[in-house]
Write a protein that binds this DNA or RNA. Structure first.
Lengths: 342, 342
DNA sequence: TCCGGTTATGAAATCGTTTCCAGTCGGGTT
DNA sequence: AACCCGACTGGAAACGATTTCATAACCGGA
């Protein structure tokens, strides 16, 4: 395949390069005849601009980037999609940047800044830990979505999230109300992950309020994939048949756990109750449908975009809490064995 | 945040720009002391290269791109991951480019070519239709993964896939062997999509061979999401209670269908049998586990990469067929009502 | 006829890198 | 002492676009 530059096009069309550039960018100050001639040549050659050169030269005024950590996470990529949609209502252009789970958002932010002059960021799938001070040092407006930045002390970061602690507490309350006192919690490593930590605390709040003890051994750290959850659950339940309910920190994990229980001959919800988290499609269509906490995607997206645009115009940081919703499914039932006992 | 260029770094370190460049790119011909001094300044400033400028200048020799159409499709993104892994064994560097379902791969290919000199492509989630002649016109080595390019006449395109027609036929054979004669097929729009068309033909082959009629009304076109499949199924089964088995063209679709049936009071597999396609995690962990056709991800990935590298070195186009595998699940059982009849 | 004011156009500078090329500086050979 | 060679280094020319600025052409009005 031939490789054309704007100069080739200019030569073929018998005009100057600047004219071609003007045509390509839809500038008004080109005569109709010239425009047509250039357009024809461009089409004929299948010419496309070299983005590298373009971006190098055009230091765009300011725009915002949504950084999604983990492209396989449906919950996050749906959210990003929604944000893009909301962003249409603002004059600031938004773009989405997917990065891998392993690599860090700060490099990506820096990159986006000096390649394209990104002036603000929405962080999805991020967490707040010691490394977050980098966000502060960058000094650019940021919004943490689904993460609470209220106590972080980062001056340039807003956040929007549900009250994870209260949500987890409500979930546990419901399990307790169903008579479950032997509950296992399946989550991620909560050290250095404020989100998991908050949910854990919520669950503990509930247990404490009801005077129920929690054996730390019943907190299971798992990968957030079906296979990971399944394997963790198989291993865990080998030696923990006393458990009658599982609070999982994502719908995917809940699904994996349910399958594992099923294979062990334990029915959900008859023998064991299981709850999920996030409110994904998966929870709705799994059999049994999974009781879950819906994080209002649309609202979080809308608020995140709004908050970032506010800050870009000089507004102060703010933390917004949106309402979560407990979505009943078919995976929680009264505890039989407990009833017998009691 | 300050914005640094390589020139700033050079000035601060008291060296020339070319030296900084050499350090940044790990060239050997820099004295250790200089290297250290430059590195220090770079770290201190948090300097990152401007990729635009870099790519603009460095016309890399040749490398290959994997174009994935649809970033939400787990099956495809897993495959891409696997390809990247296989590619490490070759000297050609590979990169992955995700594009949206709506937009076309040809623009992306052109873009990648003249921005980065991509010399070859693997197309994932593509299909072969009239627009594919663009692939031919580009004239660069391409590999269609999970799509058969054998009869396409595109001189520069190899392909690797399972025998979709035979696979679909086997699935239908198994359903028939279980006594199901009233089968519905849930798939995508097969006009202009060779993959769906091939699977459809396979299913028809089987029916024909067994002398079973197929009512074209029983081919249901659906979106390939849980919600889409669920809704299609709800709608379809309102008026089609005679159906005792569903052949779905993806695991996701199968899951949505199973849920819909369940809500209509039809048990899988007792009342209706359902089969999926692809062999994803989902199929394995759904309840009931879904009978499916496993497309050997690793092998397809490995062959695709191999084929592309072959072509890059001047080899001829080839079409490779890899073995599929029918993975039994828990979603197919003998047809009760049919048994009663027969 | 001359002039101010559009309108359309091209030449040239610029963006931040890489890389070629030429040059400096020691130190070992003749 | 003259020479060469190797290891380092810096200057400057690209890369392919955009954008500023200057110029040419044209038009209507005085």
């Amino acid at each position: 395949m031939e490789i054309y530059t704007i100069r080739d096009i200019a030569r073929k069309a018998g005009v100057g390069v600047s004219t071609v550039s003007r045509v390509l960018n839809g500038r008004p100050d080109v005569s109709e005849t010239t425009r047509k001639r250039v357009t024809e040549v461009v089409e004929a050659c299948g010419f496309v601009q070299n983005r590298n050169a373009r971006n190098l030269k055009t230091t765009k005024p300011v725009f915002a980037a949504i950084i999604v950590r983990g492209r396989r996470n449906m919950f996050l990529s749906d959210m990003a999609e929604e944000m893009l949609h909301c962003a249409q209502g603002y004059k600031t252009p938004f773009i989405v940047k997917y990065i891998d789970e392993e690599d860090d958002e700060f490099g990506a932010m820096r990159q986006l800044w000096n390649e394209k002059r990104a002036g603000g960021f929405i962080l999805l799938g991020s967490r707040i830990d010691e490394r977050s001070e980098i966000v502060a040092s960058l000094g650019m407006p940021c919004v943490f979505a689904t993460v609470d930045a209220a106590g972080s002390g980062i001056a340039n970061a807003s956040s929007v999230c549900i009250d994870d602690r209260a949500a987890a507490r409500e979930v546990m309350d419901r399990l307790l109300a169903n008579g479950h006192t032997n509950v296992a919690v399946f989550g991620g490593n909560s050290e250095g992950n404020d989100v998991f930590a908050r949910r854990y605390q919520g669950a503990m709040d509930s247990l404490r309020a009801h005077g129920v003890d929690f054996n730390p051994e019943h907190y299971v750290v798992t990968r957030f994939t079906l296979t990971g959850a399944y394997e963790s659950a198989r291993r865990f339940f080998e030696g923990h048949r006393e458990i009658t309910a599982v609070l999982a920190m994502s719908d995917t994990v809940a699904a994996g756990v349910i399958r594992a229980l099923w294979e062990l001959g334990l029915r959900v919800p008859q023998d064991v109750s299981v709850t999920g988290y996030d409110g994904t499609e998966m929870a709705k269509y799994f059999i049994p449908a999974i009781d879950t906490v819906r994080q209002p995607t649309k609202e979080i997206a809308r608020e995140s975009v709004k908050l970032l645009c506010e800050m870009l115009e000089g507004g102060e940081r703010r933390d917004v809490t949106v309402a979560y919703e407990y979505v009943p499914g078919e995976s929680v039932a009264a505890c039989r064995s407990c009833a017998r006992e009691g």
